[in-house]
Simulated scan of single mutants.
Amino acid sequence: MGDGRVTVHIPKYHGFSALRITDAKGDHLGFAYSDTPYDVMDMRGAKESARRTSLYNRAMTAMDKSAPDIDALQELIAWGERRGDVTPNEPDAVMTVNGLGGKGLMRPPIAPPESLSNQEEEDEALAVDAARASILYPADRKAS
Rank of each mutant, 00 (worst) to 15 (best):
G99V: 04
D39Y: 09
I77P: 02
P91K: 07
A130I: 13
G101R: 05
T53N: 15
R82S: 04
P108M: 14
E90S: 06
A18I: 11
S66C: 01
Y38F: 01
P108D: 14
W79L: 05
T87P: 03
K47T: 13
W79V: 00
I21T: 06
L55Y: 14
K103N: 01
D42M: 10
A125C: 03
Q74H: 08
D92S: 04
L29Y: 03
S49D: 07
D129M: 11
M63Y: 10
A93M: 05
R107C: 00
M41S: 11
G30Q: 09
A131L: 04
S17C: 09
D42H: 09
S34R: 13
D71T: 04
R51G: 03
G26H: 06
A133T: 01
A133V: 03
D64H: 10
S34E: 03
M95H: 11
A46E: 10
Y33A: 00
P68F: 04
D39H: 06
R83N: 02
R82M: 08
I135V: 15
P91C: 04
R51S: 08
N98G: 15
D69K: 15
L116S: 04
L55N: 12
V94P: 00
G102L: 07
L105C: 05
G101A: 01
A59T: 01
V40K: 01
A62K: 06
S49E: 01
I21W: 07
A59G: 05
R83W: 02
H28F: 09
V94Q: 03
M106I: 13
S66M: 02
D69P: 05
I135K: 14
S115N: 06
D35S: 12
N89S: 00
A62H: 06
P91V: 15
K103R: 06
L19I: 04
R51Q: 11
